[in-house]
Amino acid sequence: MYDKGKIIAGIIIFLILITFPIWYLTAHSQTSHVPSLETPIGNECIEPTNWMLDNHMKLLDSWRNQAVRGGNYTYVASDGKEWDIALTGTCLACHDKAEFCDQCHSYEGVTPDCWSCHISSPTSGNSTASGNITGAQ
């Protein structure tokens, strides 16, 4: 192989450069910004937190189909509790959009377009904010 030294040195420099973020993070032991979520205290989410972390988008998608396409506005959680299928009325009754949803979504560069229609504050306007549990109505 011609220019063996140059080629191998080049490959090593390339590998160092391309893995720079990893070395940089290792040296600084932390990323510059990690999302910090303001989670509601004392309240368990409608499903276990870890499950929600993985599945909230799938749950919301199935909610959308159940409510809009199926006309079913009640979700039965795995613990048997019943909840209104409502993004603003149920989810945002506990969670704050800016302090909760946006934290991870901005960090991950995810831009769900929920909020172009759904209202991000459950108390805006002349609301009679509906209860969480269907039975309470």
């Binding site: 506005y73 603003t88 009325g89 172009s116 229609c117 459950p122 306007g125 609301s127 904010a129």
Partner: peptide
């Protein structure tokens, strides 16, 4: 004028119409 948070608004670029208050019928 006053947003009702219990019902979504629509967004630019969609068609809308009366739906016989299906969300109220469900309740």
């Amino acid at each position: 004028k006053t947003l009702n948070p219990d019902y979504p608004t629509r967004t630019k670029g969609v068609v809308e119409k009366c739906d016989f208050c299906e969300e109220r019928l469900a309740k």
